[in-house]
């Protein structure tokens, strides 16, 4: 029930943040969200700024350049869009900190299992990919030519799929042994 209420509150806040266009109201919403985050506010704000920095900076700089060239630069737009993006991203960070995403998917068991499997595999794949990159870096003194770089990347992807195929089989066996799939016939029932 608590997770459901938080989700409803989050949805309402997101709709409000995209329906209000006065920067003062958007700033007030951000202050409220910061207060709601309590002691987590500095950590979540740092995460928010890191997540939005690249895109907002590119759009803001592009807007300033285009505005200067056309002679119609509007500072209020820059303030409005950056506060809005910050508020929305902060609200998402706050939601993630307060709601168990996998528990929230309980209403759809197949999606819940799939999400669990994906998250576990993401951890495995990212670690393996980092190890492959570090191993390749440690074995060369200078940057690879483009063609060799592509060949190396392709080799890494093939290796990842090789592992993925094996892992998929192991997961299927593990899921079957835990009763995820219904028995197929009389033989299966005997086991």
């Amino acid at each position: 029930m608590r997770d459901r209420l938080l989700l409803i509150g989050y949805a309402a806040a997101v709709i409000a943040a995209t329906s209000v266009h006065d920067p003062r109201w958007l700033a007030a919403g951000l202050v409220l969200a910061l207060l709601a985050a309590g002691r987590d506010a500095p950590r979540l704000l740092r995460r928010t700024l890191l997540a939005m920095l690249a895109f907002s900076a590119v759009v803001s700089v592009g807007y300033v350049v285009a505005g200067l060239l056309a002679g119609n630069l509007n500072p209020e737009y820059l303030i409005r869009i950056n506060i809005r993006v910050c508020l929305l991203t902060f609200l998402t960070s706050l939601l993630v900190a307060r709601v168990d995403f996998l528990r929230a998917l309980n209403f759809w068991p197949a999606a819940s299992y799939l999400a669990t499997l994906i998250l576990s595999q993401v951890v495995t794949f990212r670690r393996l990919f980092d190890e492959l990159r570090q191993a390749a870096d440690s074995r060369r003194l200078r940057r690879l030519p483009l063609r060799e770089g592509y060949a190396q990347s392709a080799g890494a992807v093939v290796h990842l799929f090789d592992k993925a195929e094996r892992t998929a089989g192991e997961i299927a066996l593990a899921m079957r042994s835990r009763g995820f799939f219904a028995p197929a016939g009389p033989d299966a029932r005997r086991h």
Partner: peptide, 11 residues
Amino acid sequence: LLPRLAVLCAL
């Protein structure tokens, strides 16, 4: 299907 889909999604 589910395990194959999961590992492909992870990639």
